[in-house]
Nucleic acid binder design. Structure first.
Length: 829
RNA sequence: GCGAAAGUGGCGGAAUUGGUAGACGCGCAAGCCUCAGGAGCUUGUGGUCGUAAGGCCGUGGGGGUUCGAGUCCCCCCUUUCGCACCA
């Protein structure tokens, strides 16, 4: 037998798998279905590195395992192919985004193939092609009709570098998540999806997702940010008493007696009205404008100074009857709650700081039970302690949900307050002022206003011939052939919407499109979707914990309400694989592998030198797949050696004797390994599965070398090893399997079955402890009961030595494992 | 501040869920083989004392429960991640 030529073997099997379309699934039959899905990648111009590889290798190993376990596994792949980088490439290099993208897809597909990854390519989808985005447009029209899509003028996040607006979810610490540029606030007419209507359902749904990582659910809860509290009205007095009262939101209605002033966000519509007659109205207006323009990072930084202006207006605190001043301040945000707060300096840190700064009054509602504090002395707000004093019927109460309820009931009775729930979640801003995205299918008509494009006219295709200048404005809006159209309603000349959709719209329903990838009439077939969806196992990076996964859960509910799918949760189980890191010379630190940091490892030379199977085994062996792991260039050779040792061993089975004494031992090891690998793969523990197979190989090699097992037994062991290893190292195992004379592809064989009886041992080494310390190991018969074991243990010289003549107070016997002889006197006998 | 995780040899990491801590691999050391090797093979490898047998110590720190704790409970410390002037 020759040495292992990985190059030949790998290309041979890759070709065969492709030719025989081994991973194509007929969706008509959904028996034993298992829909697994990798988050579809963005075809960027960068070649995939081994860090990306980890994700796909993991998925492929799972896929092959499921197949062998008899599941009808669907593993499709596609391309999340709209987005900014394509457009930037066009501007920088003069390549059309479409050509650039489709080229990148070809390159990436080749890389998948070289890793030996099997996808069902018959269901491939490409989101930047009209046969896909047509249904984005269809979905948009449905949502427009149900008023789940709407356009409004609103302060929005504008990235000056990407020259487009961003969704709230795409702003990270006040900066654009893509390019890091500080985001500006602009007032613009934009399209939104009404995700806030679904806030409660999205929150509640998380409870029904035991198969999701706690971390992701926590992040989503955080993001939705439900706060329960009350809404309280404060009537304006004096010259403004004819205006509607100011409504504030608070989580602490129980502190209303301590509200000594009100604060509006400077952007609050009432602000301009209240200061209109103010002697310094111009200065105040200028200040409001300044606050409005302040980038969010500065405004929302915790250390940013608080600034405020008194409007001159007064309002009545319904609890005390006092007239309290109405202020404007930058620390109140326009888009949370009602954009107005009641300030309770005694019981809120921010309000206290502002009150001290501006010399505003402080009034205690809750008084500490030990040691009196006056309002003037208060340095720290009293948050969750004390009892109410000086508030009439509420005196003596301590804080908590019940007290809050009593206050709300009181306000409701008086008609100046009510229970209210507020969310941090904002509506999803989906319009982008860029070319490379799904055109929003509406027309602006001078006579008819906003007119949806009729379904029959879909898709509204992106024009190929446009100019990429990189200057302000969407290239689409400069394309007359696209913009100029006629109104579908009145047939008069009108203009098309030139904004395109956020690419997260594309990815919010793609998992359903795989199931009807070639259907040109419908977004997907509801029957097939009901049978195959939801996705059983979704695999992807934690970076999508909020954005993509929240949007997909939202759109799934929209589709559910439309009667298109019978479920509300698209992904039953979610797995977040960890990143691969490596030392980066540029920064001198261990960082996430990336091209820009210069620490990426290309799979090409690695596959060339040691083979894809080596990369696969090493990647899976590296550590728990959900953990971040550091790549080691040296350690790869361990996997390489492992595979070569299998190859060499396969050529030595002829040396084995026809009969041998310890077949049971090898047979036992075989079944132990089946048990371990099966359990490990069920729990995604590929690292320990590989370790178990290495141990198996070590044991088998020993048996062959020492000639302690028969040929038949060794052959059975090798066959099992090949089957168990196949998900991790598919090429070499297929080749050896074929060389062993098996006709069928390993992929189509049944996963080895565990025979529990084979795990039994006649004798085993019993661990013997004296007073909890390991003192000896003695060989005992498995059938022995406590009496026989005790007798044997007491005969051990080592045990006798450590007992030192003391009496055994207690004899702990754990069958099949250990005994513990306790001599301590303090033990109750 | 709120929330989610995690701390085990020189390194990556195991530990059947309360029962032999350090599996497996990398690295390192010694030896074998080879014209040579960045190939292969064998043996060893937590610390410490000891020629050895063996002893003692050891899973971030401190307590506790238990015959027995990396694992359970309490209190700290550290690190990573997410959210945050959110009322």
């Amino acid at each position: 037998m020759n040495g292992y030529e990985h190059k030949q073997v790998e290309s041979k099997w890759q070709e065969r798998w492709e030719k025989q379309r081994v991973s194509e699934v007929d969706l008509k039959n959904a028996r034993d279905k298992y829909y697994m899905l990798m988050m579809f990648p963005y075809p960027s111009g960068d070649r995939l590195h081994v860090g990306h590889g980890r994700n796909y290798i993991l998925g492929d190993a799972l896929y092959r395992y499921l197949r062998m376990r008899g599941r009808r596994a669907l593993n499709p792949m596609g391309w999340d192919s709209f987005g900014l980088p394509a457009e930037n490439a066009a501007i920088q290099r003069g390549i059309h985004p479409r050509d650039w993208t489709l080229d990148n897809i070809r390159v990436m597909k080749k890389q998948f193939r070289k890793w030996g990854i099997l996808y069902d390519w018959s269901k491939e989808i490409t989101s930047c092609l009209p046969d896909y985005y047509k249904f984005n447009q269809w979905l948009f029209l449905q949502m427009l009709e149900k008023v789940l899509a709407y356009k409004r003028r609103a302060p929005v996040n504008w990235c000056p570098s990407c020259r487009t607006v961003l969704a709230n979810e795409q702003v990270v610490e006040g900066a654009c998540e893509r390019c890091g540029t500080a985001v500006e606030q602009r007032e613009l007419e934009q399209w939104f999806f009404r995700i806030t209507d679904f806030a409660d359902r999205l929150l509640a749904g998380l409870e029904g997702l035991p198969g999701w990582p706690e971390k992701v659910k926590a992040m989503q809860r955080n993001w939705i940010g439900r706060s329960q509290g009350g809404e309280i009205d404060f009537s304006l007095v004096g010259q403004f008493d004819s205006l509607a009262p100011i409504t504030v939101f608070t989580t602490r209605p129980d502190t209303v007696h301590g509200a000594t002033f009100l604060v509006l966000a400077p952007e609050h519509p009432l602000a301009a009205v209240l200061v209109a007659g103010h002697p310094e109205r111009e200065a105040i207006a200028a200040w409001i404008e300044k606050v409005r323009k302040t980038p969010r990072i500065e405004r929302e930084g915790e250390s940013s100074p608080k600034e405020g202006r008194f409007t001159g207006a007064m309002a009545t605190n319904g609890a005390t009857g006092d007239a309290i001043p109405v202020w404007l301040a930058n620390y109140v945000l326009p888009d949370y709650g009602s954009g107005a707060i009641m300030a309770v300096p005694a019981h809120d840190g921010r309000d206290l700081a502002f009150a001290r700064q501006e010399g505003l009054p402080v009034r205690l509602v809750y008084h500490p039970e030990a040691g009196a504090v006056t309002a003037d002395e208060l340095k720290q707000p009293i948050l969750h302690e004390g009892r109410i004093r000086g508030c009439g019927e509420f005196d003596g109460l301590s804080g908590g949900a019940e007290t809050i309820q009593r206050f709300i009931a009181w306000m409701e009775k008086g008609g100046w307050g009510r229970a209210k729930v507020t969310y941090r979640l904002r509506d999803w801003l989906i319009s982008r002022q860029r070319y490379w995205g799904t055109p929003i299918p509406v027309v602006y008509c001078d006579a008819c206003g906003i007119v949806p494009v009729p379904e029959s006219e879909l898709p509204i295709e992106l024009p190929y011939e446009v100019e990429f200048t990189g200057k302000e404005g969407n290239p689409l809006s400069r394309c007359a052939a696209f913009v100029n159209t006629i109104c579908p309603r009145c047939k008069k000349p009108s203009r098309r919407e030139t904004d395109t959709m956020d690419t997260f719209v594309d990815s919010s329903w793609y998992y359903l499109r795989y199931l009807s990838a070639r259907d040109s009439q419908r977004i997907f077939d509801p029957g097939t979707a009901a049978r195959w969806a939801p996705v059983d196992q979704y695999i992807g990076g934690i970076e999508h914990a909020i954005l993509h996964l929240l949007y997909a859960r939202f759109i799934c509910r929209v589709l559910h309400d439309m009667g298109l799918v019978p479920f509300e949760e698209p992904f039953t189980n979610l797995f977040n694989q960890g990143m691969i890191t490596r030392f980066a010379e540029k920064t001198g630190r261990v960082e996430k592998m990336s091209k820009s940091k210069g620490n990426a490892v290309s799979p090409d030379p690695l596959i060339e030198e040691m083979g894809a199977d080596t990369e696969r085994v090493y990647t899976l062996f590296l550590g728990p797949p959900e953990d971040e792991v550091e790549w080691s260039d040296e350690a790869v050779s361990g996997a390489y050696r492992f595979l070569h040792r299998i190859w060499r061993l396969a050529g030595r089975l002829e040396e084995c004797p026809p009969t041998a004494p310890s077949d049971e031992a090898l047979e036992r090891l075989r079944h132990v390994t089946i048990q371990r690998v099966t359990r490990d793969l069920d729990r995604f523990k590929f690292n320990t599965a590989v370790a178990a197979l290495m141990e198996f190989l070590n044991g088998l090699t020993r048996a062959v070398e020492d000639k302690t097992a028969s040929k038949i037994c060794c052959e059975a062991a090798l066959d099992t090893l090949l089957q168990l290893l196949h998900p991790m190292a598919p090429h070499i195992t297929e080749e050896l399997w074929e060389m062993r004379g098996h006709g069928q592809s390993l992929l189509d064989t049944d996963w080895p079955v565990l025979d529990e009886a084979k795990l039994a041992r006649e004798q085993f080494l019993l661990v013997v402890q004296v007073d909890g310390k390991l003192r000896d190991r003695i060989e005992v018969e498995s059938v022995w009961g406590e009496k026989e074991v005790r007798l044997a243990v007491l005969q051990s010289l080592k045990v006798q030595e450590h007992l030192g003549g003391r009496e055994v107070q207690k004899f702990v016997f754990i069958p099949g494992r250990l005994v513990n002889l306790v001599t301590r006197k303090d033990m109750p006998a």
